[in-house]
Simulated assay, not measured.
Amino acid sequence: MPVLPSPAPIAPAATHGSRSIRVGIVLLAAVAFALSYDALRQMAVAGHVRGLLTYLFPLVIDGFIAIGIVALLILRTAPVRSRLYVWTLVGVATGTSIGTNVVHAVGLNEGTRLRLNNATAGALSAIAPLALAGAVHLYLVINRHLGADSAAEETPSATPDARPAPPKPSHQIHQEPPDGGNTAPSAKAAVPEPVTNTTVAKPPPAKADRKQGGRKTTAPEQVLWSTARTIGTEHGAVPRTTLESAIRAQGYTIQKDRAKEVAAAVTAELSSSANSSAAA
């Protein structure tokens, strides 16, 4: 058997490069946030936001963008409608941030002091309540999705097993012809089944013994011995072929050696009983 080569270990240089990329991404995001933060704060001052609240205004816009991206990762298995809704919120927040930065740059480029028209100032004042409504609804969407996942994990699947049920064993056994072509006379084959006093269902077939032909003995011991004694009472002896025919007429199969053994035992019982009666 060929030996599969073990996976090559990760080179230290690759690990170091991956770590450098992560650090670079974090630094780039921090610098971009600082630049956008400065522009958005100046827009808040120009929009007549008072005092220290101007430092919170950039968080309403850029912070919403960051939260929306994290929400998309959480809702990656949610329905398309929920993910499309979150994508819309993130797109609107990103567009607002870009537009505000553009207005800030153009306004300062036209003069030394940033002045906003009435439409721009009114739009800036509407950002905070809109962000509040979007954040609350976004929280509800995420909470509903996580609750549905938890319920699906705790509830067992109610889908029935698709595999077909195993077929029930049939009590009808194919009747095979006796060995060697020996067929008992029809009069002897029509031996009536002995009537038993019990109403209990037939016991399961005894463990079958295989022979060279592959046939099994399926006749229960009680049925086998009762049939043999009935034949012996009527005929004074138990021919093997007659016993086999009677057993097969009842829907069972029997091994030739087993039929011979039971027939000889019942014949011996009849002889012993006859000798005892004669001696008496």
Rank of each mutant, 00 (worst) to 15 (best):
S276Q: 09
T155Y: 03
V86G: 06
I65Q: 12
G180K: 08
A39T: 04
V45D: 10
I69D: 10
I231F: 04
S245L: 02
S277M: 12
L132C: 02
L116M: 02
A78N: 03
A201N: 05
I21L: 12
H48D: 13
P5H: 04
E193T: 12
D161C: 07
P156S: 09
P12W: 09
A32R: 04
Y252A: 01
R258I: 15
I25R: 09
V266T: 01
V70F: 15
G181S: 13
K207G: 07
L138N: 08
V3F: 06
H235D: 15
G134K: 00
K260L: 13
H235E: 15
A201Y: 03
H145E: 14
G99E: 06
I98W: 03
P2I: 05
G180Q: 07
N143G: 11
G63D: 05
N118K: 09
P129I: 07
G232C: 05
P178N: 14
H171M: 06
D209K: 15
T155E: 12
L40R: 00
I69V: 14
Q42E: 10
N275H: 09
L84M: 13
A123T: 00
I69H: 07
M43V: 03
N275G: 11
N197D: 15
G236F: 02
P177A: 12
R81C: 04
L89C: 14
I173E: 06
V70Q: 08
R215M: 11
L138G: 13
M1N: 09
P239H: 07
T159Q: 13
S18T: 13
A44N: 01
L27F: 11
G91C: 14
V60I: 08
S271M: 08
V200M: 10
N182I: 12
H145Q: 13
Q42W: 00
D257F: 05
P164C: 08
A279F: 12
A208R: 05
A206E: 11
P129A: 11
V103E: 04
A162F: 06
P203Q: 13
Q250F: 04
S150C: 10
G213E: 07
I21P: 00
D179T: 08
A105M: 07
R163I: 02
V26D: 12
P194D: 06
